[in-house]
């Protein structure tokens, strides 16, 4: 099965942080991604800019209406994700716990198999 590990956190621009703060977090992600890759479990992973950079498109009277910002305003926003392969929820949760150990809040979300 596939699972998406969705990272939640403060809605801020990590790229603007000073290098000495950024380096340890990046190192954590690199070793986490490495572990997933070595286990043959990594499908994809990305980090996102803060939600203020997002543009939300809604259909209004058949026309697309654009609004500046995320779908839901909140101090906590999605900061990134890992898409992984796992045998079952317990295995996915193991990865989720490991990710949460340095990212604080992670949702482990099953992905529908379309095949």
């Amino acid at each position: 099965m596939r699972y998406m590990l969705v990272i939640y956190g403060n809605d801020e621009d990590w790229t603007q942080r000073p290098a000495e703060e950024l380096a340890p977090v990046i190192a954590e992600h690199e070793s986490f991604g490495e572990a997933l890759r070595n286990a043959g479990k990594l499908v994809a992973s990305e980090a996102l800019y803060p939600s203020s950079t997002a543009t939300t498109v809604r259909m209004k009277d058949g026309e697309p209406l654009l609004t500046d910002g995320p779908y839901l305003e909140s101090k906590e926003q999605i900061g990134g994700f890992y898409l992984i392969e796992a045998a079952d929820l317990d295995e996915a949760l193991e990865w989720g716990k490991r990710l949460a150990s340095f990212e604080d809040t992670v949702s482990v979300w099953p992905v529908i198999n379309m095949e």
């Binding site: 699972y3 045998a87 079952d88 929820l89 317990d90 996915a92």
Partner: peptide, 14 residues
């Protein structure tokens, strides 16, 4: 079924 909760007895660690 959707989230794939396994039908197992957890290992010693857990």
């Amino acid at each position: 079924s959707g989230a794939g909760i396994p039908f197992v007895v957890p290992g010693t660690e857990e």
